[in-house]
Computed example of a mutant assay.
Amino acid sequence: MADFQTTPWRLICGILAVMCLVLMAALGILLKNSFPKQSIRPTSSPVGTTEPQEDAGCCYCQEKWIGYQCNCYFISNEIKTWTESREFCASQNSRLLQVQNKDELNFTNSLMYLYWIGLFYSEEHGAWLWEDGSALSQDLFSFSQTMDTGKCVTYFRSRKLLSESCVKKNRYICKKQLI
């Protein structure tokens, strides 16, 4: 008689254990999906892609673009001159990277190459300017005094800038502001 009474309890315990495992798995999946990934997946070209991609909480970026802080970024694998890079970004309704604040560069820590950004030396103004004509804020970067004038700027992880001839070929970063 004792064996007969414990059988329903074993069945109930087994069902509860399975339910507990299913709930734990569901919780794990929900937690994984609730925190956006900020990994960089360099790609060759976003041309021809129109599928929306949600990489950050407030923005939808097309495929092969990275969403971060309500902006979309394209990290190229192709090498181009500064002008060619600028033209490519413009063809994608974006610009070469223009940094607004120090936190914006947190997603670039794993970059392995030099990348053109939208910064160049304007001889007319005697200053470093962004592509849109605005001046570089000196507190964004540890800007070296030895930067050559008459050149364009490449970016490397850890907020390092290098001036290079604008006709040299490098990878590039495009930025599309969504808000």
Rank of each mutant, 00 (worst) to 15 (best):
M1W: 04
T7K: 14
L11W: 02
L11K: 13
I12R: 14
C13Y: 10
L16H: 02
L21G: 13
A25S: 12
A25D: 08
A25V: 12
I29A: 11
L31I: 10
N33E: 13
P42Y: 06
G48K: 11
E51A: 15
D55I: 04
C58D: 09
C61N: 06
K64L: 14
Y68R: 09
Y68W: 15
Y73W: 10
Y73Q: 06
S76F: 02
E78W: 00
K80Q: 11
E84D: 15
E84S: 13
S85T: 04
S85C: 02
R86I: 01
R86K: 15
F88H: 14
C89E: 05
C89K: 09
S91Q: 10
S94D: 05
L97S: 09
Q98C: 00
V99R: 09
Q100G: 11
K102Y: 04
D103F: 07
E104V: 06
L105P: 02
N109P: 01
N109V: 07
M112E: 14
L114C: 03
W116L: 04
G118A: 09
L119A: 06
L119P: 02
S122M: 10
H125Q: 15
G126C: 05
W128R: 05
E131T: 15
G133W: 07
G133P: 05
S137G: 02
L140I: 14
T149A: 01
G150T: 03
G150R: 00
K151N: 09
V153W: 00
T154C: 10
E164I: 02
S165V: 00
C166E: 06
K168V: 00
K169C: 00
C174M: 06
